[in-house]
């Protein structure tokens, strides 16, 4: 049976970025998912949360915890990503100076997500928002 979890994120709210990944980490631990898989999933979800906080106006994380894998959908209302392949390039960033000063926005987010997931799909519309869908097998 799949377990559904949902979290809201507000743009600019870095204090709540990490809530979803932290909660999902606890749930996966309780389900005795292997530690290595949990680590990868947590990195991917955290980066996605930070992306929403750094770039979008608002968004949400929805996770479906299944028996063999976890499916995560992170959707936001925001500026969208103009060039997805460029955004995937390590080091490329459109983050503001303030965000960078916090140590975020180094252009590693999406590549960290790619590295730690088994399936990743990004859909984006300029001026409307972005939906990230990824899956990790345990």
């Amino acid at each position: 049976m799949a377990l559904e979890l949902a979290f809201k994120i507000s743009g600019g709210d870095f204090s709540n970025a990490g809530k979803a990944s932290s909660r999902i980490k606890k749930v996966l631990k309780q389900l005795n998912i292997d530690a290595k898989s949990i680590k990868k999933i947590v990195v991917a979800i955290y980066e996605a949360e930070v992306n929403v906080a750094a770039h979008a106006w608002k968004g949400e994380v929805k996770a479906t915890v299944g028996e063999e894998n976890i499916l995560v959908v992170v959707s936001d209302c925001g500026p969208g990503i103009e060039n997805i392949s460029l955004a995937m390039k390590p080091g490329f960033s459109t983050a503001s100076k303030e965000v960078r000063e916090m140590g975020f926005g180094a252009g590693m987010g999406l590549s960290n997500i790619k590295k730690n997931t088994d399936e990743l799909n990004i859909e984006s519309r300029k001026g409307e928002g972005t939906t990230l869908t990824f899956r990790c097998y345990y």
Partner: peptide, 27 residues
């Protein structure tokens, strides 16, 4: 760089940094 730590640091390591905000503890 927080994403660098997120992507690279390993369990039970000590993290040395000059960042002082709460996301450091989240990571």
């Amino acid at each position: 760089l927080l994403s660098d730590v997120m992507g690279t640091a390993a369990e039970n390591e000590v993290w040395i940094t000059l960042q002082t905000h709460q996301n450091v503890m989240a990571i």
